[in-house]
């Protein structure tokens, strides 16, 4: 039978786990947003763009978990698992957000570039004032989806011992032998965050699709 006493006692630990999970997601996502945009712009330059493209392709086609473990092993011991985890998450997802930005940039009408040129705007102004604002607006829902996706990938950091939700569940579960409750609660906690977020994203999609 379900042990409610255990549920009650384990909750603080699990909630602290989910707090770490949310921190990881938010910081990692910020990295992915900024780095991905950078990559999307750099990719349009010759040679360097090609190299960057290949590296991103490589990151996208190999597992996140082995990337995390590899980087963790290659970095000096005084860098925390949390830092490693958050950076690898961010870089991995930058490979995806870059593609999203790219599709947004390619979706900006050619006439917009030409109009910017006709007005003699500098390259920086063209990107900053004309292209990116239009491109980003269009891809906000797609970017939002990666926020949820990243949230669901944080348990992988269990592999390097970041005390996120799954790690906490495993700890309290094995200490008390209430494994069923521990892991089932993790499932529910994930749903409790990801289902409402999915609903918000769908709202966003509707709102931005209307434009």
């Amino acid at each position: 039978m379900w042990d409610f006493q255990f549920t009650y006692e384990a909750m603080p630990d699990l909630l602290s786990g989910i707090l770490t999970t949310i921190q990881l997601t938010l910081i990692g996502y910020s990295i992915a947003l900024v780095l991905g945009l950078l990559v999307a712009v750099v990719r349009r330059t010759p040679i360097i763009g090609g190299i960057v493209h290949f590296v991103m392709e490589f990151i996208r086609t190999t597992p996140l978990i082995i990337q995390v473990v590899f980087v963790f092993l290659m970095t000096p011991a005084d860098i925390s698992a949390f830092t490693v985890g958050v950076v690898v998450l961010g870089v991995h997802y930058a490979a995806y957000t870059a593609e999203v930005y790219r599709s947004g940039i390619e979706g900006v009408a050619k006439g917009q570039w030409e109009a910017a040129r006709a007005l003699s705007l500098s390259t920086g102004r063209t990107w900053g004032a004309i292209v990116l604002p239009q491109a980003i607006r269009k891809v906000i829902p797609a970017l939002g989806n990666y926020l949820i996706s990243m949230f669901k990938d944080t348990p992988l950091l269990f592999a390097i011992g970041v005390t996120e939700l799954l790690t906490q569940a495993q700890r309290v579960g094995s200490e008390s032998f209430r494994v069923v409750e521990a892991y089932t609660l993790v499932g529910f906690l994930f749903l409790a965050v990801s289902v409402p977020s999915a609903i918000i994203i769908r709202r966003l999609e509707k709102r931005y699709a209307a434009v």
């Binding site: 669901k152 990938d153 944080t154 348990p155 992988l156 269990f158 799954l166 495993q170 579960g173 494994v179 069923v180 521990a182 892991y183 089932t184 993790v186 499932g187 994930f190 749903l191 990801s194 289902v195 999915a198």
Partner: peptide, 15 residues
């Protein structure tokens, strides 16, 4: 879609 595959796998293996 809402629960990570890793969590589901742990559930099947341990719970």
């Amino acid at each position: 879609r809402g629960i990570a595959a890793l969590v589901v796998m742990f559930w099947f293996v341990f719970a």
